[in-house]
């Protein structure tokens, strides 16, 4: 195993810990928006698809890359819009509570 891939494992494990400790305390109100937002983030595989669709490796990889870019974009765009709509809805509640005070 060469040095780079060992370093990649370090990055993976440490980022996993960050994710773990970031999420441990989340109010149940935010479960669904958080799920939706992490869903949008998981479409980061778009980054890999972009290279695939643009690189010159023959028509099959390009075609697969094109389909992958399309799918990942659907996930990113749809995911963030859904999250935004949910959070927009939630924002009214704390404001209304503030006005009552």
């Amino acid at each position: 195993m060469h040095g780079t891939s060992l370093l990649e494992i370090y990055v993976f494990v440490l980022a996993g810990f960050v994710g773990f400790f970031t999420i441990t305390r989340v109010p149940s109100l935010l479960h669904t928006p958080l799920m939706s937002a992490t869903n949008a983030i998981s479409a980061i595989s778009l980054v890999g698809s972009l290279v695939l669709a643009g690189a010159d490796r023959g028509w099959i990889p390009t075609l697969l890359g094109f389909v992958a870019v399309t799918s990942a974009t659907i996930n990113v765009v749809g995911g963030f819009i859904i999250t935004d709509r949910m959070l927009k809805m939630f924002r009214r509640a704390p404001r209304a509570a503030g006005e009552k005070k």
Partner: peptide
């Protein structure tokens, strides 16, 4: 895993964040 396969750190980091947080969630 894609990040490991093509040597791309942002994929590894975002994927690990997502993997851990999704599991905890």
């Amino acid at each position: 895993a894609t990040g490991f396969a093509i040597g791309n750190n942002v994929l590894i980091i975002a994927g690990a964040l997502d993997g851990a947080s999704g599991f905890i969630l």
